[in-house]
Simulated scan of single mutants.
Amino acid sequence: MSQNEIFVKKSSEGMEPFSIEKLKNSLKSCSTTDEQVDAIIAQIRPSIYDGISSNEIYKKAFALLKKQNKISASRYSLKRAIFELGPTGYPFERMIAALLKENGYKTKVSIILEGACVTHEIDVLAEKEGNVYAIECKFHSDARGSSSVQVPLYINSRFLDIQKQWNSNPKNKTHLKQGWLVTNTRFSKDALNYGRCVGLTMLGWDYPKNNGLKANIDSLALYPVTTLTSLSKKEKHLLIKKDVILVKELLDATHEMKSIGISEKRINRALDEVKRLCNFSKHASLDD
């Protein structure tokens, strides 16, 4: 069977032709060398069959990459690592607040605000240069989740209710300027069109192009602890329960790691991975 006849079952349950170039690009995007990419492709290609799932291809590539370059493997796993932050959306909200803080915003997570009509819970409230932004975080635990037009319609109506109350209150010395909608997956075309029309800032996995969630996490090294290859899945989730969400936070969380039974030797191994992973940071701004 030729390559053109091979179809891959996507996580969204659709089918698409298998593309070597797409696999190569996904491996190269995590700073894997050309030699490592070629070696992984050479080992994977013979095992590809018609109807194989994209998840199975990912698992094969991740296992091979982990043997060659653990740091690249951590970065390659980013999308799935964010899915593993669940089941609640709170760790994702913490990550978004950290991303904004790196870009000069003051942030608060899970804030209750009065609207002109009703009370609202805001996932992240961010302030910069006298302007305030109300941010809604739509976390999905798998790739099939996406935000349809109903989501920004709802978010914008909430924002307008809060904005009316906030900006009419003489006690507020700041201006509630804009609503934001952030997701770890994608937006529908109608959702993007509506967001642009009403002035919502939209941040998705790969939207805006070259400045989406993935690009910002990579540039700021704001990787979740779930990306680490040196800790078990159970250990990562125990750390999340202790509110250790980002790999950077592990540098000051030795006590938390000890408290869940991680040995001194493995703590040092994890911290070494954290430092190497964070060295990929090339600071970029959401404001660019």
Results as ranks from 00 to 15, higher is better:
A284Q: 15
T174C: 12
K164N: 15
V151S: 08
L100A: 00
D34M: 03
L23D: 07
A143M: 07
Y105F: 15
G89K: 14
A97P: 00
E102R: 14
T107G: 10
I245K: 05
T201W: 07
E56W: 11
S54K: 08
K101C: 02
K171T: 08
N103Q: 00
T174E: 02
F139G: 05
H120P: 07
S141E: 07
K106Y: 15
S77T: 09
K22Y: 10
I122A: 09
Y76N: 06
G89W: 10
N103P: 00
H140E: 03
L213Q: 04
L125R: 02
M95F: 14
E21H: 11
F139M: 07
K233Q: 14
K22M: 05
N156F: 15
I82D: 06
L125Q: 02
K67G: 09
L277H: 05
Y90I: 09
V37T: 14
K101I: 00
I135Y: 00
D34R: 12
S148I: 05
L125E: 03
I260V: 08
W166I: 06
D123H: 02
S19A: 00
F83D: 04
A253G: 06
N216V: 03
P224Y: 13
E102N: 11
F187T: 14
L228C: 01
Y207C: 01
E273R: 07
L228G: 03
Y105T: 02
K106I: 10
T107R: 04
L286I: 14
E129F: 07
P152R: 08
Q43E: 15
G14P: 06
K258P: 03
